[in-house]
Design a protein around this nucleic acid. Structure first.
Lengths: 124, 124
DNA sequence: CCCATATACAACCATTTAGTTGTATGTTAG
DNA sequence: CTAACATACAACTAAATGGTTGTATATGGG
């Protein structure tokens, strides 16, 4: 799974978090209101602990934040979250059509996968 | 990993495929040119078979297509691919601010996670 | 104070992933 | 034809995932 600089790691976490229907649903729900974890848990056919873990994954990816209110933990989708994911996709396109391609040609080395940036430092 | 109707499944595959830096890099490279699998493999610090598998994951997600040319298999990023991923993100927002919320209120039932559409078909 | 609720977290299990190696099958260049 | 190359695919391993149950710790209401 390679190590990667924090840039790639952030994208890894983001997309990984979105790659599960339950988590996407949590994101949707928590865009409208703040919901406690137990409230959320009631909505899915799985244990409280399982939902707790899903929320943790979303939190690690920066897609939601938690805020304590009394004895409950209110979950809310980070306002900028989905937008941020979209930006990563944009960069995915941009990296190619702009920077990399152009720079490689300027340097006179053809921009093909000869041996450059083997996954590692790519745009980190 | 649960069954899901094909709609969610497609999103699962899409985001899962994007949740790996090597695969994102393959997507970038193959937007510019068509590249053979072995050509791609040279670019990463892993075996040919490993890269082959990454390409398979991308293919399953509809992010790239393969086309035979002689003895090589040329990989190319699906033109519409990234755009499609972005659309899923848009829907993620839209579902909330438009449809679900509004409909639920119209129906007079509060749109909270009581038990409605628990991600649907989540029962494995 | 006592209890029910809301969360946290550890331990465990089954499945998937990401990688490996090894072998088989096509295809093209000589 | 044959050798070298490009791919396909099976089998195996280590680690990560997604889920479970069980236990511990806060907190709020009466």
């Amino acid at each position: 799974m390679v190590v990667y600089g924090s840039a790639d790691e952030a994208a890894d976490h983001l997309f990984h978090a979105l790659a599960d229907a339950t988590r996407r649903d949590i994101v949707r729900r928590c865009m409208r209101d703040e919901l406690s974890v137990s409230r959320l848990a009631q909505a899915y056919p799985m244990s409280f602990a399982a939902v707790q873990k899903h929320v943790a994954v979303l939190e690690r990816a920066g897609l939601v934040t938690k805020r304590r209110h009394g004895r409950e933990q209110l979950v809310r989708t980070a306002p900028e979250a989905v937008r941020r994911a979209r930006r990563v996709l944009d960069e995915l396109e941009a990296t190619w059509r702009g920077r990399v391609d152009r720079m490689a040609r300027l340097l006179g080395q053809d921009p093909e996968p000869g041996e450059d940036s083997p996954t590692k430092g790519q745009e980190k």
